[in-house]
Design a binder for these strands. Structure first.
Lengths: 144, 144
DNA sequence: ATTAATAGTTAAACGCGCTAAAGTATAAAG
DNA sequence: CTTTATACTTTAGCGCGTTTAACTATTAAT
């Protein structure tokens, strides 16, 4: 059975998704990045230095696919491969500065409507909502 | 300048996206739907009966692309085209029951982690967070 | 009645991301 | 030292979503 809060969270997510998905796809199109590429950037951004297979598994594709996708990112100067000196079979994937910038920029594009939303609340409402979200963020971090 | 609440909203979204995007893509892969198809289903679900060009514009593609994408959805029994009796050049796009079911199902798959999150809060925290989200939902509806 | 405009469909061609399978390089095990 | 395992890359081939351009059907304008 789903709690009343779960219900509300789902409803909120539905709204979030509609706005965010749209902004995301339009951003990708405008900048000529594919959804797969941006998703890969997010994964690398989050996981930090990791192997190609790990990345593929994260994204639900074969390591061959991950390797090829990474090629494009490297070509565009958004990511780099470096060898693991301990075990030279392993590669460590990381974002370049340009790659990090794209992550930030695309998130901003995706979330621009949130700023409009924040403005619609009174000062005290803002404080209350802020407090609640902080709580959620804190708890979410224990879910990883 | 971005408010403290904006900042928190963005941070929350970053977390939401990471979980949700991943679940979304894995669901799509498992069920053999493309991201484009699911996005189209969401758009139709939200906009209700609308024309093919409208749909294309919503998704940022040409009407030809929208028409072709719709073909696949129709083939799979997820959507239907009906003529507008007023102006027979117009078509009205709508989801079938099966289509609606996919929308619900994919949202549920995408959001399963939210239930785990909700459980991590005490009763009074749940009430507080619920109230805040209700506020956001209400305000968001005025943004459409 | 023509002509022009609108909404949608169809066809050809292209790039992308995917997989499977073969290939390369390095490390570990016997 | 040889064999086996691991991590990644390369290649060939496939389906999907996209665009442009041509086409059909319907409505509006002159």
């Amino acid at each position: 059975m789903r709690s009343f809060l779960s219900q509300t969270l789902h409803e909120w997510m539905h709204i979030v998704m509609r706005h965010s998905m749209r902004n995301f796809i339009l951003y990708a199109k405008e900048k000529n990045y594919s959804v797969a590429q941006l998703n890969a950037l997010y994964r690398i951004h989050h996981k930090g230095a990791c192997g190609i297979s790990d990345l593929g598994e994260e994204m639900g594709v074969t390591s061959a696919a991950a390797s090829q996708l990474l090629d494009k990112l490297v070509q565009q100067g958004l990511a780099v491969r470096t060898e693991d000196p301990q075990d030279r079979r392993n590669k460590r994937v990381a974002l370049t500065e340009a790659g990090e910038r794209i992550v930030q920029e695309s998130m901003a594009a995706r979330q621009s409507w949130l700023d409009l939303l924040a403005e619609k609340l009174t000062q005290s409402e803002q404080e209350q909502v802020n407090h609640s979200l902080r709580l959620l963020i804190e708890k979410a971090k224990t879910l990883e």
